[in-house]
Structures are given as structure tokens and as C-alpha cells.
Design a protein around this nucleic acid. Structure first.
Length: 283
DNA sequence: CCCCAGTCCTGCGGGC
DNA sequence: TGCCCGCAGGACTGGG
């Protein structure tokens, strides 16, 4: 689930680690299948030990811990991963730990119930290759209508699945794609190639509105309660959801229509047939 | 090249 | 009550 707002919240949750020094790193033995940690323990430790944390960044839906020696620790939480500075929800799914000295944060934990996430270390060159513009589109908070239209405007895909394409724009996942399209007043099955310039503008404006609001709420903690910030506290944006997981409920904008659920590329999409028209009327 | 279905994994909830 | 199956959707792979 973690998408841009949740990962950005994780990033902000470990910002105080900047300036601290890495004392040690451990892949933790948990009862389940271990997550992917690359490289293996001895090399990982050799490359990070005693290095100061220069900066904490984000690459799409990944948290990036940049070290003074230009190595970058990339944490990719995928579905159920959490970056924590306090004790995790359960000992059982604790997967990885970074021990720090010389600062207010003494440990950064990676906890992951399903274990689909990973932690990888990259040199500066590798990092640029892995997360450069070839592999990852512009960040969803910084993308412009012109760039998005240039990347997707000729595609015959439907807009909602296209928004999940991280090469087009980085950070949007299944939940926020529905929320963004509702705010923009665009039908999720609208073909990219059929979108007007004005609709690309609405889409980009809605993206900023939704993601910034969600960051202020520290993300969405859904029913299973999995997602938490670095202090293991719930987000609150789920209370502001307009359409996601609200099939059958009245549309918060037009209150005339009920929210509909459809499936696109095996993923749920939620929208209002009344104020998100397949053709015609823009917002 | 472009796009989609299948895959990884665990926990939860619906149906019987 | 308990069991089983389907579903949740990050990103990657293989194939049409």
C-alpha cells in the first residue's frame, strides 16, 4: 500500500538521523522467509559502517538513505513494509535494522508483514542508473501537465492504469490514482490519447492537491491497520477518502451518484459515474 | 515497443 | 465453529 504520501511520511520520520553515524547493520532472522537484502551482510556492513548519513531522500515509493561516501541505502516497502524508529508492531516480521550513533535516533527498523519489500545498497553510479529518468518518471509532486502529456498523451491505455506506470510519473499507486481522478473529474477508463490539454492540467493539479493533503494527514491507514508512520502511529487520510473502498456510498462531490467499483488490469478502481464522465465535460 | 497477465507473500473476511 | 478460497496491490518477468 505505501504510496508517495506514506513513503514521504516515512522519510520525514527518519530525517533526524541526518548527521548520525552508522554503527552497524543487521538483516534480522525472522521466522518467515527472509526479505531481499543486497549485498550480503559482510559487504553491506563494510560499505556503510562508520559512515555519516548525509541526506534522507525518496525515489518514488522508496526511502533513500544517502551516506557521506556516496553509497545509498534504498528501502522499498512494497505492500506492507514500514520504516520505524520505535519498536515494531510485532517482533515476528522485523526484517532489518540500522544501528546509529551520534544523534537522536539510535535505530532504524524495517518491518514487513508480507515480506515483499527489499533493502538494497547502491553506489552513486548504480543509484543513478536504477532510479534515473530512464527507470523512474518525474516525482508526482513535481510533474508538470506538459511532461505528463508528453509521456502518456499518445498512449491508447486507459488513464487510471497509466497513472500507475512509474516510468511515466513516480509515486502514484492504486489508492491515490482513484482519489486523484475523482478530484480531477476524469473517468478512469478515459483513453490517454483522448485527454485534452485542459484535462492533463486538471489531472496534475488534482495530483498535487490529493498527495499534499495526504502527506499532511501522514498517509492512509486502511482497515487492516498495517500502515504506520516512523513512530508506529496511524495516518488519517483514510477519513478523507472520496472514493477509495467506498463502493455503494454517495459521491461526496455531487451526492447524486453512488461510488462504483470496477476492475482495470486486475486492480480495483473506484469512481463516480455522475461527475467523472467518460467523454465531454471537464471539471 | 507496448501492454498485460502472472508471480512473489501474508492476513483477513466471506461463504458454506 | 472452522476451513478454504479469494482478495489486497507494490514491482518485476515473460510473452503475445
Amino acid at each position: 500500500m505505501p504510496e508517495l504520501p506514506e513513503v514521504e511520511t516515512m522519510r520525514r520520520g527518519i530525517l533526524d538521523a541526518v548527521g548520525s553515524r552508522v554503527a552497524d547493520v543487521s538483516k534480522l532472522r525472522c521466522t518467515r522467509k527472509p526479505i531481499e537484502v543486497v549485498p550480503a551482510a559482510s559487504q553491506f556492513r563494510r560499505r556503510v559502517q562508520n559512515q555519516r548519513i548525509a541526506r534522507v531522500g525518496r525515489a518514488g515509493k522508496r526511502v533513500v538513505i544517502h551516506l557521506e561516501n556516496d553509497e545509498a541505502i534504498v528501502i522499498e516497502p512494497r505492500m506492507t513494509g514500514l520504516v520505524l524508529v520505535v519498536d515494531p508492531p510485532t517482533r515476528e516480521h522485523l526484517r532489518w535494522r540500522l544501528d546509529l550513533t551520534d544523534g537522536p535516533i539510535s535505530q532504524i527498523f524495517y518491518w514487513d508483514r508480507r515480506g515483499l519489500g527489499n533493502v538494497r545498497l547502491f553506489s552513486e553510479t548504480e543509484f543513478r542508473q536504477q532510479f534515473g529518468p530512464e527507470k523512474l518518471g518525474p516525482d508526482a509532486l513535481g510533474v508538470t501537465p506538459e511532461i505528463l502529456q508528453e509521456k502518456l498523451g499518445h498512449s491508447r491505455r486507459e488513464i487510471k492504469p497509466a497513472l500507475l506506470d512509474q516510468r511515466a510519473v513516480a509515486g502514484i499507486g492504486n489508492l491515490y490514482a482513484s482519489e486523484i481522478l475523482h478530484v480531477a473529474g476524469i473517468h478512469p477508463q478515459r483513453l490517454c490519447v483522448a485527454m485534452s490539454k485542459r484535462q492533463w492540467q486538471s489531472l496534475v493539479a488534482a495530483t498535487r492537491t490529493v498527495l499534499e493533503e495526504a502527506i499532511r494527514c501522514e498517509g492512509s491507514t486502511l482497515g487492516d491497520g498495517t500502515y504506520r508512520n516512523a513512530l508506529n502511529q496511524q495516518g488519517s487520510y483514510q477519513n478523507a477518502h472520496r472514493v477509495y473502498n467506498r463502493a455503494g456510498q454517495p459521491c461526496p462531490r455531487c451526492s447524486g451518484g453512488k461510488i462504483t467499483r470496477i476492475v482495470q488490469n486486475q486492480r480495483s478502481t473506484f469512481f463516480c459515474r455522475h461527475c467523472q464522465k467518460r467523454t465531454g465535460a471537464l471539471m
